[in-house]
Design a protein around this nucleic acid. Sequence first.
DNA 1: CGCAGTTTTGATTCATCTCAATTTGTGTGG
DNA 2: CCACACAAATTGAGATGAATCAAAACTGCG
Lengths: 251, 251
Amino acid sequence: MHANVKNVIPISGHSLKAACSQCNLRELCLPFGLEESDMARMDTMIGGGRKLKRGQHLYRAGDAFESLFAVKAGFFKTDVLTEDGRDQVTGFQMAGEILGMDGISVEVHTCNAVALEDSEVCMIPFTQLEALSSEIPSLQHHLHKVMSREIVRDHGVMMLLGTMRAEERLAAFLLNLSQRFTARGYSPSEFHLRMTREEIGSYLGLKLETVSRAFSRFQDEGLISVQQKHIRILDIPKLKTVLTPPDGRIG
Amino acid sequence: MHANVKNVIPISGHSLKAACSQCNLRELCLPFGLEESDMARMDTMIGGGRKLKRGQHLYRAGDAFESLFAVKAGFFKTDVLTEDGRDQVTGFQMAGEILGMDGISVEVHTCNAVALEDSEVCMIPFTQLEALSSEIPSLQHHLHKVMSREIVRDHGVMMLLGTMRAEERLAAFLLNLSQRFTARGYSPSEFHLRMTREEIGSYLGLKLETVSRAFSRFQDEGLISVQQKHIRILDIPKLKTVLTPPDGRIG
DNA sequence: CGCAGTTTTGATTCATCTCAATTTGTGTGG
DNA sequence: CCACACAAATTGAGATGAATCAAAACTGCG
């Protein structure tokens, strides 16, 4: 538990110039659908990139909120922890996804964002983003879409946590990763998990042993092959049926 | 199950003029913090109110998204259902809260919103809201805050579903309601539940029997008094300790 | 006043957690 | 390069909280 907590290096990472117009993630990320000229205006706003080593925090619950972050490369998790020691992973973020929207409401971050591998983000100062989106309707609209998408995603997680059993949750999780890797041009069926069993468990509302057992079961049934963090999905359709029992509910 | 589904009355309810400037919820709702002149501009935009009878849908998953809705009076639930018959209540909304933000991302609603008692909402055409918020920075910012708040709320629900046991979930639920009623000038300790045990259960990831048992247990322990839907919290501090075991975790 | 929907309560089953031991993998320093 | 220590993952056995199945009681609506 609290695997990387000791990593309190106050270095904010290297800073380097970022430019949406040059970025191959622009169609996945915030500047989606912008015209050339508007893209250039985004460039001037983006506050520069920031590199993080594995285990480093991008921000912590309690930090003042100033920017959103776009994941340029790497992999993150976000988690919430309460005074009474509960710890819930609320999401895993990969290239092109936006981090930090939790902070807008009270100008303070309400969760922690941690790099699960060496990563790089673009900083998007929020005040400037609002100013710019007042002037560029399509940017404003896309920002709203991104926030709404996060809400819809959260509903999906609630559904998962509220109605699914362990193996269904894990199947849903793997299929979701598969789909997101695919969207980024990677293999739908073979990938490397950046998080531990415990982090997966926290996200799925399960204990790490339960996650491990579910992996083993899937492997025994020929659905996937697991070697530690290396996953290969052998039968995607069959994995989907884990989620959707033959008839209605209760297979 | 599916208690009010038969209520497919296609009447969209009475339409009546709504005005933020006259509304006593304005400090709780979207126009929070606006100046008089801007408030007047909101008024011209608000598409008119809409009344719903208990059981009526405000919108359904699949409906085209056109507006957000502000709850003017009454009580709603939102729920998601999947092809395979899973059904998850994602939230309960009361006066001053905003409904429909799930629809922005794909221009189609992804959940159902149902009135749990006779209710009234204000319609906020989204295209116009975006246009107006381009011109009124404080409106734009507040819209962002409202969406962010929804994301943070969702994280809270994930925490609840992912880490709490049945009684903790119910205690958290009751305390949350209590706090929201208080913010609206109602009693913190005595209120009427608008939803069934099954709906509470769906929201909390529990079966209705479990919800009922937890209520009974709380009553036996003198924490609350329950008479069907009428709830009186007898000992708020003690109810809070259900949530926060004496020491760390595992009481 | 009766009926349908809702709630309560009990008995039993089952999925996941807990506790515990072992194996595997990873990074470090001799 | 190998050995060691530590972190992560697997696996097993048993405990437990919530689900399930079932029946009875209550409520309020028509």
